[in-house]
Simulated scan of single mutants.
Amino acid sequence: MTTSYETISTSLHGNVLSATFHAPPINLIGPEVVRDLVGLLEELSHPAAARVVVFDSADPDFFFPHVDLTKVPEYTAEAAKAGGPGDASLGMLFHQLSQLPAVTIAKLRGRARGAGSEFLLACDMRFASRENAVLGQLEVGIGAPPGAGAIQHLTRLLGRGRALEAVLTSADFDAELAERYGWINRAVPDAELDEFVAGIAGRMADFPRDALIAAKSAINAISLPTPADVRADAAMFQQLVRGESSQERTAALFQRGLQTRGRAELELGDVLGELSAVD
Rank of each mutant, 00 (worst) to 15 (best):
A148S: 15
P47V: 11
A144R: 01
A221D: 05
D124K: 05
T3F: 10
T76G: 11
Q238P: 08
P208I: 04
T7D: 03
G182C: 08
S246F: 15
E165N: 12
S170F: 12
F237Y: 14
S89F: 02
A23K: 04
G262L: 07
Q99T: 09
P25E: 06
V167L: 14
G199L: 08
A79C: 12
E176C: 06
N15G: 05
Q255I: 10
V188P: 00
V54K: 00
P101L: 10
N132Y: 13
I142C: 15
L138N: 04
P65F: 12
R130K: 13
G86R: 08
A171Y: 08
I26K: 01
Y5T: 06
R126W: 08
F64C: 02
S223I: 14
Y5E: 08
T226V: 09
D56L: 07
A234V: 15
R35E: 01
E267L: 13
D233R: 06
G269V: 04
L268W: 03
I219R: 02
L158D: 05
P208V: 13
V38T: 05
A77Y: 12
V33I: 09
M125Y: 01
G143E: 06
V72P: 12
R249C: 11
S45L: 11
L44A: 00
P208W: 12
G39D: 01
S89W: 02
G39W: 03
R249W: 14
A221R: 07
G110W: 01
A187S: 13
G199K: 03
A49T: 09
A251Q: 10
D279Y: 13
Q238R: 12
R231K: 15
Q247E: 09
E192D: 12
L41W: 04
V72Y: 13
T10G: 03
A122E: 04
A277Q: 07
I142R: 07
S57F: 12
G14S: 05
A232S: 15
S89L: 04
N220T: 07
E179G: 01
R261E: 12
T7A: 05
R186F: 07
T260G: 14
